[in-house]
């Protein structure tokens, strides 16, 4: 019966990632930077990888946009695109909220996984989308990631993960919590196989996602000024009864405290990945 609800509407959910990316461009020609309030052409902003050329504010990217920016043109092959959330706890409104996020985003879940190439080098990639249930990790996110990691192990390819998530998905209770363990056990397999894992934290990477796979890269990178942390700012302020500094839990704060290898500007991200991949090429990577 649950299945019926989804299958009835299935046609609406079928989307082509590249088209999806186009839909994300707001109507009209101009837009305003939420950070410095400069007015700019949307076309220019897109050309600039969705980074404000005045203040370098990194606008949020949808997962299809991220894939487009990161992988070689036409190289992406998606895995498990048809996987959708179940409602194991019969949680109030969960089914409806998932369905409305599917409709709103054109995505089936909060992560896209697949294989592709970067600078001609084969990779397995996962990209989270903060628009879908705040990018939270439930069973589908965990399962898709683990399957992607399994592909990496079988194909002896590096695994690249772009995190963008508010944490565990509350509506799936302990199922969500256990996805932290599940993704970590899968990453352990990747590790044992001697394969590279690059974690890129984007805005925001918090809670259970920050406290599991996102922190476990052989190399941990982040985009500038992303919010990254375990506990929420308000909870910490309530707990310690003091105001936190403005830069608290930003990429730059994490770099300063030894939690990141580098903060990388979006414009340099692809080159940086190419460089890392090339250095690791002999360590079990195959040319496409």
């Amino acid at each position: 019966m649950i299945r019926d609800i989804f299958t009835k509407k299935k046609k609406k959910y079928a989307t082509i990632p590249s088209e999806q990316a186009k839909q994300e461009v707001p109507e009209g020609l101009m837009t305003k930077c939420p950070s410095c309030k400069s007015i700019m052409y949307i076309k220019e902003l897109r050309k600039n990888k969705m980074v404000c050329d005045q203040c370098q504010y990194h606008h949020r990217l949808t997962s299809p946009e991220r894939i487009e920016q990161t992988l070689d043109v036409g190289s992406f092959q998606e895995f498990d695109a048809d996987m959708i959330a179940k409602d194991p706890l019969n949680f109030p409104d969960y089914k409806e909220k998932s369905a409305s996020d599917r409709k709103k985003t054109g995505l089936n879940e909060a992560v896209i996984t697949g294989r592709g190439t970067i600078g001609g080098m084969g990779v397995i990639i996962g990209v989270m989308d903060p628009r879908f249930r705040m990018g939270s990790m439930g069973s589908v996110v965990g399962e898709k990631m683990c399957r992607a990691i399994q592909h990496a192990v079988e194909e002896e390819k590096p695994f690249i993960m772009f995190a963008a998530s508010g944490g565990a998905r509350m509506q799936e209770g302990v199922f969500s919590l256990m996805q932290m363990a599940k993704t970590s056990t899968a990453l352990n397999r990747l590790h044992e196989a001697g394969l590279l894992f690059i974690s890129i934290m984007t805005h925001p990477t918090t809670g259970g996602v920050s406290a599991s796979f996102a922190s476990l890269g052989d190399i941990n990178l982040a985009e500038p000024k992303a919010l990254i942390g375990f506990a929420g700012r308000r909870i910490i302020e309530q707990t310690i009864r003091q105001k936190l500094p403005d830069n608290f839990q930003t990429s730059e704060f994490l770099l300063e405290h030894g939690q990141l290898d580098q903060v990388v500007h979006r414009k340099e991200l692809k080159q940086t990945l190419e460089k890392i991949l090339a250095i690791h090429e002999p360590a079990g990577m195959k040319e496409e």
């Binding site: 649950i2 990632p17 695109a81 048809d82 959708i84 069973s139 589908v140 399962e143 996805q179 363990a181």
Partner: peptide, 14 residues
């Protein structure tokens, strides 16, 4: 560990 469904028959273009 995990519970999920599939949207039957939907193919997503690459």
């Amino acid at each position: 560990i995990g519970e999920f469904d599939h949207v039957n028959g939907v193919m997503v273009d690459e």
